[in-house]
Design a protein around this nucleic acid. Structure first.
Lengths: 195, 195
DNA sequence: GGACTGACAGATATTGAAATCTGTCAGCTG
DNA sequence: CAGCTGACAGATTTCAATATCTGTCAGTCC
C-alpha cells in the first residue's frame, strides 16, 4: 500500500492511524490494519507505541492540539477583550459544529477517542481554560470586565457554554435556533463579566 | 408473586414496571417480567400499553413529572426573584446529584430511558424552562432583572447550567470542586440578568 | 361481552465455538 | 547491532445456532 522503503517514524504511524480510523471507524481500527497500511509488521508499530491505547491517545492529542492552536491565535489577538472573548467562543463553537456537520462519522470516531482518553481531554480543557483566563485577565486590567478571580470566571464561562462545544450535544448543533441560543448565552455571560 | 385478584390498572402496571427496571436494569427488563410480577399474562399488559416503548415512555414521564412538581413549588414561592432563581437552580442540581450519587444503577436506568424518549424529555425541559421564565418575569416586573425577553433568558440560563443537571455530566457531580463551580456559574448568570 | 389467556410469527438477544487481535520476544537481516 | 519480522499465548471479537421476547388475535372464562 504505502512506500515500504522509508524510515518508520512515530509521525508516519500517527498519520496512518488517522487514515485507518477514518476508513474503518474506532471499533474496527486495529493495530494490524495500521501496520498493513504502512507495509510493515505490527511488531514494528509496538516499537514506537507501547500499547494500542497509547497510539490512540497520541492521535487524540494531535487532534485536540490542532484546535487549541487555532484558538490560541484569537486569544492572543489585540482587539477589545469583550470582542476577543466573543470571537473565541464563536470560533470554538464553529469549529466543533463544522466538524460534526461535515463528516459525522469522523466526528463520532473523535468522540469515542475523547471518551477513552480522559486525561488528554482534561489537559486540553485546561489549555483552553488558560486561553480564556488570559482574555479575561486582559479585560480585568483594562476595566472592561470586573472579575475578582479570572481563572474561576474562565472556568465558569467554559462550562456555561458547554452546550456549544461538548460533543455530547453534537446532534443539537444542526437545529435551526441554535445560533440564537448561542448568542443569548454569550450575551448573558458577557453582561455578567462586565457587570 | 403479586395478589392476582385485583383489577389491573395502568397505575399498577407502571408501579410493577418501575420495580422490574430497578431489579433487572433497562436492558433486561421485559414485558414478560412485568406481567409475571403482576401475576398476569403479558397479553394483558398490552391491553393497557400498545407497545413496550409506550410503557417505558409512561414510566419516564412519571419520573420526570415528579421532579417538575417539586421544582414548581419553589418557582411559585414568594421570596425575592434572585433568591428564588438561586434556590430553584440549586434544588435542580441537588435533586439530580442526589439521585445519581445515591443509586448509580437506578440513575443509569433513568438515563437510558430519557435517551430513548426524546419527546417526553423535550416536554419536561419545556416545562422546567416555563418555570424559569415565570421566575425571571417576576424579577423583570420588580426591576431586579433586566431581561428584554424572559423566555429567551430562561432558555439561556437553563442551557448554561446544563453541566449541573444534564445526565451526561453525572460522573462529574461527585468531584470536590463541583459546588464552587456551580456557584461561580450561577453568580455569573445572576449578574448578567441583573446587569 | 369485556377482561384475560396463551399459542403463534417475526424480531431480538444469548451463547459458545472459531477467528482475529494484542502485546511479547527470540531470531533474522542489512 | 539497530530495526524489523513473524510465531505465539492469552484476550477479545465475530458469527451462526439457539432461545427468548414482542406484539397479535382467536378463543376462554366469568
Amino acid at each position: 500500500m504505502a512506500p515500504p522503503t522509508e524510515t518508520l517514524t512515530a509521525e508516519r504511524i500517527l498519520e496512518a492511524t488517522e487514515e485507518v480510523l477514518r476508513r474503518h471507524g474506532p471499533a474496527k481500527a486495529t493495530v494490524v490494519d495500521v501496520a498493513r497500511a504502512l507495509g510493515v509488521s505490527h511488531g514494528s508499530v509496538y516499537r514506537h507505541f507501547r500499547t494500542k491505547a497509547a497510539l490512540r491517545e497520541a492521535v487524540t492529542k494531535r487532534w485536540l492540539d490542532r484546535t487549541s492552536e487555532k484558538l490560541a491565535v484569537i486569544a492572543a489577538g489585540d482587539g477589545a477583550p469583550e470582542q476577543r472573548l466573543r470571537a473565541w467562543l464563536a470560533a470554538l463553537f464553529e469549529a466543533k459544529r463544522h466538524k460534526a456537520g461535515d463528516d459525522p462519522e469522523l466526528f463520532a470516531t473523535y468522540t469515542v477517542l475523547t471518551d477513552e482518553n480522559g486525561t488528554v481531554v482534561g489537559e486540553h480543557i485546561a489549555d483552553l481554560t488558560a486561553q480564556l483566563t488570559r482574555i479575561i485577565e486582559t479585560g480585568s486590567a483594562s476595566g472592561a470586565f470586573t472579575a475578582a478571580d479570572p481563572a474561576a470566571a474562565a472556568r465558569a464561562v467554559f462550562q456555561a457554554t458547554g452546550r456549544f462545544h461538548d460533543p455530547c450535544y453534537a446532534r443539537e448543533w444542526q437545529g435551526p435556533g441554535i445560533q440564537d441560543e448561542f448568542e443569548a448565552v454569550v450575551d448573558l455571560l458577557v453582561r455578567g463579566l462586565a457587570a
